[in-house]
Nucleic acid binder design. Structure first.
Lengths: 196, 196
DNA sequence: TTCGTCATGTAATGGGTTACATGATTAC
DNA sequence: GTAATCATGTAACCCATTACATGACGAA
């Protein structure tokens, strides 16, 4: 009982934890950085971020560093900026999230966040997550193929075209993941250096 | 003021309207059909569908057809099934949603629904939506490219790889849309018949 | 002094998910 | 009879968005 309720559980929290693990930051800056972690585009709104920070503060994952305290880069003296820093508890929470390799980690958004912090994990963890994500995509592929063949009579050209396109991108995703897994197993961090 | 508030506005409503426009159905059946309209996979939950139907009923878009009333196919005598049917108001609402070509229609989920009902619109409408969607994807492309070049120093191999992959799929999406637009402008419904 | 950006927050709202509650019908 | 599936619905909860409220700082 009581799995975790709501939608995407703590994706935002995870991302914030990871960014603050890298370096202390204030909310406004955090929000700008978030889009590079949380999916390619998409910025989170303040109405979502600030309450999240408040919650994390209450749970002792983060702590406020007085603005005079400095230590972080790019802290030109603007105003009342509240700079947040990870506590030991927060660090621990982040590490434990990072180490997860279960089905939650194959979810779209969750996978992106894990991927963004991949260089901070062991190769085993990376491989397990990549394989899990791939099997998730293969399930999706199967369900798309099933739907395509079963309801073939009643669909018009556009529906068919959309299905074909969806199938295509999912297959591509699977191939991409397979490449990453292979590179991982060949023993390396040799990622991202394919001449382009 | 009061644009439309919340997240994805009436995507579910639109999809339900479209499915019921095709043929009367009860909730359980509706829910199964929904995944073919609303994105490739993803089924909506009852906790979302039934309240939506209730709301639509209250607004007079749909009406209950007594189970004995029949008329719809596949109505083997199960039980208390509440079969819903579009009212004139509902039909009108659906037509007016179908005719929209503004920025709302380029959104991910919204676009999928429009696409699913594409064969029920004019070619002009289709072209306008496809072009809008393409420009939306081109914006995304630009922002991805910007992020890739600007933050290139601080990203590790994995982040770069994710960005590269995102760029790739978005480019592919743009090409797909371009093909569809061209086929549309060549005068036809000739979609989905590319030997494969 | 006004405008744009930096900066932090809250309130109202919308819409989705899980888990629960209920019950009929069909197949074994 | 009992389990699976069909079928409808509610309650608690979570999380995100918009719009609003506030205010400092720098530049025109």
């Amino acid at each position: 009982m009581a799995k975790q309720s709501g939608g995407k559980s703590g994706v935002l929290e995870f991302a914030v934890l990871g960014l603050l693990h890298d370096s202390p930051m204030h909310g406004y800056e955090l929000r700008k950085q978030l889009n590079s972690v949380l999916g390619s585009f998409r910025a989170i709104s303040y109405g979502s971020l600030y309450p999240c920070l408040k919650r994390m503060l209450g749970q002792g994952m983060i702590r406020e560093m007085g603005p005079a305290d400095a230590g972080a880069p790019a802290l030109s003296g603007r105003r009342s900026k509240i700079v947040y820093q990870l506590t030991a508890d927060g660090k621990e929470r982040f590490e434990s999230l990072l180490a997860e390799t279960g089905p939650e980690t194959w979810d779209d958004e969750r996978f992106d966040v894990h991927f963004a912090f991949f260089s901070q994990t062991d190769s085993d963890v990376r491989v397990r997550i990549l394989q899990g994500r791939r099997s998730r995509m293969e399930e999706r592929l199967a369900s798309l193929k099933g739907a395509a063949s079963k309801g073939a009579e009643k669909v018009d050209g556009y529906t068919a075209e959309l299905a074909r396109h969806g199938l295509d991108s999912t297959e591509r995703e699977v191939r991409w993941l397979t490449e990453l897994i292979e590179q991982e197993q060949l023993g390396g961090k040799k990622v991202g250096n394919k001449a382009g």
